[in-house]
Design a protein around this nucleic acid. Structure first.
Lengths: 266, 266
DNA sequence: GTTCAACTATGACCTAGGGTGAGAGTCAAC
DNA sequence: GTTGACTCTCACCCTAGGTCATAGTTGAAC
């Protein structure tokens, strides 16, 4: 072992104080350098020597440092008394409250970003079998037609889906869509078309129930609206990917279905 | 005026981009230096040249910077995709939440310190005409007798007083105390003594009403307890400052008063 | 052509709170 | 006398840039 321990005398060397207060030696040097905690010196070798008084000041410094005061501020605080101290603390409090608010904003912003990311992933899963350029055109057109706010709302909802759910829904939907594409040309009141439309209706309900809490079912009006939007310009292009005339066929089948089965819903 | 404006070409000089994105020129130099946003260079003079692509990246950088990411982290983020990005954002969110919690602790700590400060000021006002050494002895003894927790509780209450209130209360109390000191030796059931005791009771009620919300009045039991504590060792010494035998005289007068006027209170 | 204002570049040094390492001196124990 | 623990000072490194100095370039006005 090294040095004398100086058991009784309440005098500390740099390393002793360092261990006692859990501060690095370099930090003590630094505080000395900055005039924040200037120790005595041994005349013979120039070693730093701290007394009980220094320990108390150091504790104070550490408290202020934990409160995020700068070295310069701490120096003033240690000299300040009464009125002054109250003033400084009050200002510091205001600063901290402001920081807290700005961090709140950051957290909100990060959460929004994460939501967007998740929604984008889910959308990618949804449209995985449609060429990217078509999806991008559809995306741009939709954004400009319904406005960013509405899009953001949908995005937030879409982000609620887990990737597994998204995958499952996509498969379900793709299956129905492909089967439906084969019925293009058949009369919309045929048993096969209406059965597929029923599957489609139930599939959309399933998806909605995963997104909206306390979902009770898609109403007549909503389904009619969806039917019409299928044949609108940007959606139309996506649908036609599965077959010529898909959009119009689907619109007609959906409206027929709604008139027969959803009248009076909600 | 300075340079060519290059109206059509979507190419920016350092200062143009600087103004456009509200970033200092030096920051752009720095981002170049750090490899975060490396512009093209004009071959003839070595001037930095930014394109539309750089502007987009810069916006990204600024968003991340606002979210308190470090330059190194931002560099990784700009390269990261999907899973990675989600991971990093999530970690950053955790960091921010932790920071927020630690700031909460700091704010609590500052508020406690400010309270202590205010309480100390009020106590100084209260005991302004009593020698400091006596007050200090009383303080130390009380702390060791009733324990730090109880003392802290009282301190928190005391801090609720404004300095003006404290000053007013001190004057009121001092007046009564001095008048009361003159009655030492008189019978405790004399009219003068009991009138002063009544004033004292009302004064204490006044003070309590300033500290405790919905204060309804000091009960018989409380007042008896106060009377007895006046004659206890550490309080005794403070009282004797105003005259020999003060404590015992006050105790007796208070108990007599309570028996006569406060029986059945609360 | 000259001069001026505006712009550009690089480099050096500064911040707070130290970290890390070099090189040298000091102390006590074996 | 060697070892290990400790000390000192000096000097360079980090972040995210800010500030200042010096010098080169450009375009416009005179």
């Amino acid at each position: 072992m090294g040095r004398n321990n100086m058991v009784d005398a309440k005098i500390y060397s740099v390393s002793q104080l360092s261990k006692l207060a859990d501060v690095s030696v370099k930090t003590l040097h630094y505080y000395d350098h900055k005039g924040l905690l200037v120790p005595m010196r041994q005349p013979d070798n120039g070693y730093r020597t701290y007394g009980q008084k220094h320990l108390v000041i150091l504790q104070q410094i550490l408290i202020y440092r934990a409160l995020d005061f700068s070295i310069e501020d701490i120096k003033n605080l240690l000299n300040a008394k009464g009125q002054d101290l109250h003033q400084v603390l009050s200002e510091q409090r205001v600063m901290l409250v402001e920081r807290q608010q700005s961090i709140s904003l950051m957290i909100n912003s990060i959460e929004a970003t994460m939501n967007n990311l998740q929604a984008k992933k889910n959308l990618d899963i949804f449209f995985q079998d449609i060429p990217k350029d078509k999806v991008e055109r559809w995306d741009a057109m939709t954004r400009s037609r319904v406005g960013e706010e509405k899009v953001q709302e949908s995005v937030q909802n879409f982000a609620k889906l887990s990737e597994e759910d998204a995958q499952e829904l996509q498969e379900e939907s793709l299956e129905i869509t492909k089967a439906f594409a084969k019925t293009i040309g058949q009369p919309i009141d045929s048993k096969e078309v209406q059965e597929l439309t029923d599957k489609h209706y139930k599939s959309i309900n399933h998806m909605s129930s995963l997104i909206v809490e306390d979902f009770t079912g898609i109403s007549f009006d909503s389904y009619i609206q969806m039917a019409n939007s299928v044949d609108m310009s940007e959606m139309n292009e996506l649908c036609e990917h599965y077959g010529e005339g898909y959009a119009e066929h689907a619109r007609a089948a959906m409206i027929y279905y709604a008139e027969r089965n959803l009248k009076g819903n909600k």
